[in-house]
Computed example of a mutant assay.
Amino acid sequence: MSRLLAAQPDPAAVEALLAKEAIPSALLLELQFASVTARISDWQGYVVDGNGVTWAGLGELVGISDLEGGSDNLAPLREYILGIPWELLDKESTPTQIQSRIPALIGAPSEYRGRSANLSFQLFDPDLTDQFGRPLPVGVPVALDAGLMTNVSWSLAPGAGGVITTLRVEGVLARKGSPQYGLLTDRDQKRRYGDDEGLEFVPEVMSTNVNWTDW
Rank of each mutant, 00 (worst) to 15 (best):
G161S: 10
D145N: 11
D145S: 08
T185S: 00
P158E: 03
P179F: 13
A56H: 09
S110I: 08
R78L: 10
R101H: 07
D10L: 02
G182V: 11
T54V: 15
L173D: 07
L27P: 14
L173I: 06
D127M: 15
V36A: 09
K91Y: 15
N73V: 12
P76Q: 04
L136N: 01
L136Y: 00
L58D: 15
Q99D: 10
S110F: 12
V140C: 05
A56K: 15
R113H: 12
Y112D: 00
I98S: 11
D195K: 03
S100Q: 10
A26G: 04
R168L: 14
Y80F: 06
G162A: 08
L58I: 11
Y181P: 09
L199A: 08
A143I: 12
G194A: 04
E170K: 07
G70K: 00
N211M: 04
Y46R: 09
D90H: 09
Q131Y: 14
S120Y: 08
D49G: 05
S25A: 15
R115D: 01
S93F: 14
S71I: 06
T150R: 07
T185D: 05
E197P: 06
F132G: 12
E15W: 14
I106P: 05
L74F: 13
L136S: 04
S120Q: 14
V142P: 00
V172S: 14
I84T: 10
T185K: 13
A75V: 13
A6L: 07
T129Q: 04
L128F: 12
W212R: 14
I106Q: 03
S2R: 07
L74E: 04
L144S: 05
P85C: 09
W55R: 03
V169I: 06
S65Y: 02
A6P: 05
P126Q: 07
I23W: 01
I106Y: 13
L18M: 15
R101C: 12
L183I: 02
I84A: 04
Q97R: 09
K190P: 05
Q97W: 13
Q8H: 06
G114D: 01
A13S: 11
P76W: 06
A22H: 06
M206I: 05
A19K: 07
R78T: 12
L17I: 12
W154N: 05
Q97T: 07
R101M: 09
S35K: 00
D186I: 07
A7K: 02
G147Q: 02
P95C: 14
G114E: 03
A22E: 10
E21C: 09
F132I: 05
D130L: 09
E21N: 05
A26P: 03
R3S: 08
A143V: 15
A13V: 04
V62P: 10
M1Y: 07
G52E: 00
V202R: 13
R3C: 09
Q8A: 10
Q44S: 15
F201D: 12
R187I: 10
S207R: 12
V202E: 02
D195M: 07
T96Y: 06
Q44F: 07
E30Q: 09
Q189M: 14
S93V: 14
L27T: 13
D196R: 01
R175Q: 08
L105I: 01
Q8P: 03
D195L: 04
V210Q: 00
M1K: 00
D66Q: 08
W212E: 10
V169A: 00
E87F: 11
M206P: 13
R191H: 08
L5I: 02
S41P: 04
A38T: 05
A34P: 03
G50D: 00
D90G: 10
N51E: 03
S207I: 13
W215T: 05
L173T: 10
D188L: 02
